[in-house]
Design a protein around this nucleic acid. Structure first.
Lengths: 327, 327
DNA sequence: TTGAAAGCGCTAACAC
DNA sequence: GTGTTAGCGCTTTCAA
């Protein structure tokens, strides 16, 4: 790897001059020397050393993305939105999976801080953790999550009103005539927006939420399987609201094994509209969160804060109820 | 962010001493000063600046992962394998999506080089590109791809014998009685292993590959849809071999619209065993590539090369034919 | 057992 | 228009 100093020597100028040319501070550079230097740069395929530059200017042009699990199909869409936006601004992004483990959250934050990232996009795990431990000095953070209280903290937030969304999904089942509606979701140390949205709709319709119709574990297929086995081992329901699409997948698989037909015997809704939901059998009615757009918005807000000092704030994106054949 | 120098001042030692303590070169450090220094480090939540260190020791403890598209469901599994392994070694990983664009491949390589990554894991796009342009000095590369000729180049390779795998899938259809077997795959500038595996099996069975039964575009759902419309608009087939699971998803969706039953009217196979294939209707017979394991193996080989100078080499992983109800 | 000093590759005053 | 210099935070001889 050739250095700026060597380029300067070959061109018979000082490295300060090369630096100015490279950073578009070349207002005061004669076009003769600029051309000569650029030629040598091209010939040598010179790539500036970004870590040396970063150390000097205290900006690395990289951001971190901390998330529970990239192999959960909801996240790659967000990741793609972040990546595309970051690339546009000339930023790189380094990923850290935490597996919902607060310890790994903390080590991820520290790893990224040690690498001097300019900011972090964070999707919190389900478990409680002392978020304030993560915050540092004035490292900008934008959170893709509605469960973090940003009040009084200088952090950005990209959110969707999941409580209202889940209310809408549940209400759809009620309108279709369901009267005994079960819920399978995730255990959650925070305010559980999805579960509360479900309760909102039941209350509004004068229906009772019975504990035996609810099951809480994690946002995965296995929870859907286990939930159906537990709930429907005890009593029947004519509707099932799932905390996300993965749960719905597991639930529908077990319902099929039980010879229960969807939607004839029981109507089912999901949440997220992951790519495959439309290809399930039957195609799944669900709530679309604009994942790609959430990623874009998060990266945009963060980088605008980094480069233009634009303030971090809370941005709310819209969800969409997508009716398909499972209801 | 407190620096090592400040820690040293607080402890009344030189920063050289602090450095030695932090890097386990503390054989010659009195336990008194070590304890005193460590106490101050703890108290201040000191995080060493990894970019300064990287500049000095010419190692950043980060690797790059260049891939076509993280939102293609085959890649997150690989990504997770890479991440987990990297984290184990204390490495970070920065991601670059290329969208199969050779220009973005090149800029990604240069971005990562400028950031002084210690190595790169690369999954090539479908399109041709002058791979040698990417190679630098002795930046270690491991490729997760069978289509790159590593002969004479010092690059590692993680591969699966996809040609043989596709032969097996096709052969399964033949054994089930299929005689007119169509193929939908991706356009490919290189040796097309999947397509050739399909041809191998036909030849072996004395069957003819007819051009009107083949369609090539890209590894996505839309290709599956378009392929079925084109092929089955012309003539019927009793078997369909798809280049990957996404293609099979699109193909089965259109077959259903055409009122063709799988597997009764036509047997279908996929490739990759992405997570959702088992939840399709009918569940998809496919070839499992051990994606997570491929990611692990790639990261392991790369990092072992970086930290222990273990040689890069070619590693072959096994595939598995997973019969489900689509055949 | 500890410290002084040089330097990784770059930028940013400031001087000329 | 261009060069000199100091220094970002760290590691690493080498000397003490």
């Amino acid at each position: 790897m050739i250095t700026m100093k060597e380029i300067a020597e070959q061109a018979g100028v000082s490295s300060a001059t090369v630096s100015k040319i490279l950073n578009d501070n070349d207002r005061y550079i004669s076009s003769a020397t600029r051309d000569r230097v650029m030629k040598i740069i091209k010939e040598n395929n010179y790539i500036p050393n970004a870590v040396a530059k970063g150390l000097k200017v205290r900006r690395t042009n990289t951001i971190g993305f901390i998330l529970p699990d990239i192999s959960n199909p909801f996240f790659p869409e967000i990741a793609r939105g972040i990546e595309d936006t970051a690339e546009n601004y000339g930023f790189a992004v380094t990923f850290c999976d935490t597996d919902n483990d607060p310890k790994r959250e903390l080590t991820s934050f520290n790893l990224l801080k040690s690498k001097m990232v300019d900011g972090i996009i964070f999707t919190r795990s389900l478990h409680d953790s002392n978020f304030d431990d993560y915050l540092a000095d004035n490292l900008p953070i934008v959170v893709v999550d509605r469960r973090i209280d940003t009040e009084g903290r200088n952090i950005g937030k990209i959110m969707v009103d999941t409580r209202s969304a889940m209310h809408d999904a549940t209400k759809l089942l009620i309108e279709k005539g369901c009267r005994r509606i079960a819920f399978i979701g995730a255990k959650n140390d925070f305010e559980d927006a999805r579960y509360n949205g479900y309760l909102d709709a039941l209350t509004e319709a004068g229906l009772d939420a019975e504990a035996t119709l609810c099951y809480h574990d994690d946002y995965n297929v296995e929870t859907g399987r286990a939930g159906v086995k537990e709930i429907f081992g005890v009593r029947m329901a004519d509707g099932l609201v799932c905390g996300n699409d993965l749960i719905a997948v597991g639930a529908m698989a077990v319902l099929r094994e039980m010879k229960l037909r969807v939607p004839e015997d029981i109507r089912v809704t999901g949440f997220d509209d992951i790519y495959f939901s439309r290809y399930l059998s039957p195609p799944l009615t669900t709530i679309k969160q604009p994942a790609y757009e959430m990623g874009r918005a998060a990266a945009h807000m963060l980088i605008q804060n980094i480069v233009n000092a634009e303030p971090l704030h809370t941005k709310k994106l819209d969800y969409t109820l997508i009716p398909r054949e499972s209801t």
